[in-house]
C-alpha cells in the first residue's frame, strides 16, 4: 500500500515535469489560425456599392472563395495588396473583399490607387458582421471550398508563402 502511494506520487511529479518540458517548445501566443474545418454560417452582409445584401450561401457557386477583410486605414492591408492582385488571376478562386469599419470615400480611393482585386465587394461599417466570421483584427483572410467549409485562415497580412499555400489548396500549382 505504502509503496503504491509512493510510486503514484512520483509518477504524478514526473508527468507534470514532462508536460512542462514539452510546453517549453510550444508557442504560447493565441490566434485563430487553427480554427479550420468548420462550415461557415449563413451570414447576410451588405454590398459595398448599393443597399443590397449578399448571403454567404451564394459563395457555393464558386469552387473556392477567399474572403479578405481590409480597410484603407490599415497599413498591412496595403502591404498584402499585391498578393491579392496576383490571386485575382487564378480561375477557380473568387475574391470577396469585406471593407471593415471604413469611410466609403477612402476605401474607393484605396482601390483606385492600388487596383481592385475583388470579384465581390462587401462592407461592414460597424464591424459587427465580422464577429460572425471570427475576425478580431484586420487584415484577415478566410479560404472556403465549395461546401463553404473553412480550409485555411490567415491572420495578419498575406505573404508570399501564403500565396503559394492558397494556390496549392485550390489545385493551381
Amino acid at each position: 500500500m505504502q509503496k503504491l502511494i509512493k510510486s503514484i506520487i512520483t509518477i504524478i511529479f514526473i508527468f507534470i515535469i514532462m508536460i512542462f518540458y514539452i510546453s517549453l517548445g510550444k508557442d504560447n501566443s493565441y490566434d485563430t489560425v487553427n480554427l479550420v474545418g468548420k462550415k461557415l454560417d449563413s451570414i447576410e452582409i451588405q454590398s459595398f456599392n448599393n443597399e443590397k445584401f449578399v448571403n454567404t450561401k451564394s459563395f457555393k457557386d464558386n469552387s473556392f472563395t477567399l474572403i479578405n477583410f481590409w480597410a484603407s486605414w490599415c497599413g498591412p492591408c496595403r502591404a498584402e495588396h499585391p498578393i491579392l492582385m496576383n490571386l485575382k488571376e487564378s480561375k477557380s478562386l473568387i475574391l470577396v473583399g469585406v471593407n471593415f469599419k471604413d469611410k466609403k470615400k477612402n476605401a474607393k480611393n484605396f482601390l483606385e490607387d492600388l487596383g481592385n482585386p475583388y470579384g465581390i465587394l462587401l462592407k461592414d461599417e460597424s464591424g459587427k458582421k465580422s464577429i460572425n466570421f471570427g475576425i478580431y483584427g484586420i487584415p484577415e483572410s478566410i479560404l472556403l471550398n465549395k461546401e463553404l467549409v473553412i480550409i485555411e485562415k490567415f491572420v495578419g497580412p498575406l505573404v508570399e508563402e501564403d500565396y503559394e499555400k492558397i494556390l496549392e489548396e485550390i489545385g493551381e500549382k
Binding site: G127, I131, G137
Partner: peptide
C-alpha cells in the same frame, strides 16, 4: 479596444 467595443455590440444584439 476596438475589438472589445464591437464584441459588446454583438453581445447586446
Amino acid at each position: 479596444s476596438d475589438f472589445a467595443q464591437t464584441v459588446k455590440l454583438v453581445v447586446n444584439d
